[in-house]
Computed example of a mutant assay.
Amino acid sequence: MKNILILGGTRFFGKRLVQLLLDEGHKVTIATRGNTEDGFGDEVGRIQLDRENKESLAKAVEGGKEWDTIYDNICYSPQAAQDACDVFQGKVKRYILTSTLSVYEPASRMHEEKDVNPYIYPVTLGGKNDFSYGEGKRLAEAVFFQNADFPAVAVRFPIVLGEDDYTGRLEFHIDHVKQEVPIGIPNLQAKMCFISSSEAAAFLSWLKNQRVEGPINARSQGDVKLSELMGWIEKEAGKKALITKQITDSNKSPFGVPDSWVMDTNKAERLGFQFQPLRSWLPALIRQLSMQDK
């Protein structure tokens, strides 16, 4: 049994991760602001803290607490990363940071982990409002791998989808097609990769037992052109999508990238993780979400 702390674990794949860890018999503590009900009752421990405040973060080690594994799903800046390096020094055996495909720029080729090397990336400290999302994550990774005294790994996830996705990114497209409202997509030939919330949680749970450090890409097997993705949505909605290259704030697609945005997962696969084929779950999810409005 491991003693596990999850920074952010009350919704989406973080909540799924908590359940997997409990099912495996681990002792799990959730650390959040306490604004969202998690539904786990007395199965988990709880620490109420502000991830962006170093003094508050230190509550996680009060009383000499130490952790086998810490999952950090809510680190968005280099300063937050440095705070964790300071607070958890000598207090954790393994640190797993949730990072993102956004550390890479869209490109026609498939990205490998080495394309953004956090071990040599120049560090600039600042809060999450000082950087774009992608740059904040690049810098957070750099801080952990250059400054932490504990083993760390950064999981670079693409867009995570599921029926529990509180952002409604897939529903945006389904609703726009059903309502015959234009969707702003600059390049329908761009390829995208995704991962389901259940697979994201499964990967994070699996990773705690692997002897690996540094960045690691994780996505479902395969990719899909946006034109094909929109075709799946059109099929379930029973209507033709109105695609426009005239992008506005109201019609901008959450998937609207100028070029392909995919990454290589050979590193994870060599370690033994088998990713689900994208086509085994994404069309079914679109069908499920489309039915909810009927």
Rank of each mutant, 00 (worst) to 15 (best):
L139Y: 03
F131T: 12
P215T: 02
A140N: 05
F150G: 11
L226Y: 02
K235V: 11
L207T: 07
V181I: 13
S198H: 13
E141D: 14
P182Q: 00
M192L: 14
L242R: 08
G162S: 15
F172I: 06
N209P: 01
V177C: 01
G184D: 06
R169V: 13
S197C: 13
L139D: 03
T265W: 00
L125M: 15
F172D: 09
I159H: 07
L188F: 10
P258K: 09
E213S: 15
I233P: 03
V153C: 11
M230R: 06
K191S: 12
S132N: 09
L226D: 01
D264G: 14
I195Q: 07
K252C: 10
S260D: 07
A202C: 06
P215E: 09
F145L: 15
G126I: 05
K240R: 14
Q246H: 11
V155S: 06
G231L: 10
W232V: 14
I216V: 15
N217L: 13
H173C: 12
L188K: 07
M192F: 13
F145Y: 08
R156E: 14
G231V: 05
V257C: 10
L161Q: 03
N147H: 13
K191D: 10
S196T: 03
G222N: 12
F172T: 04
V155E: 04
V181W: 00
P182N: 01
V160I: 15
D264H: 11
A148R: 06
F203W: 04
P258E: 05
E135P: 02
I159D: 05
L226E: 00
S220E: 08
I243L: 11
A142I: 01
L226A: 00
G214I: 00
P254K: 11
L161G: 04
N266P: 06
E213P: 06
K245C: 12
E180N: 13
L204P: 02
D130W: 01
V212C: 08
A190Q: 05
E228Q: 11
A190F: 02
G231H: 07
R219S: 10
Q221I: 04
S250Y: 04
N129R: 01
V153K: 03
G126L: 11
I174S: 00
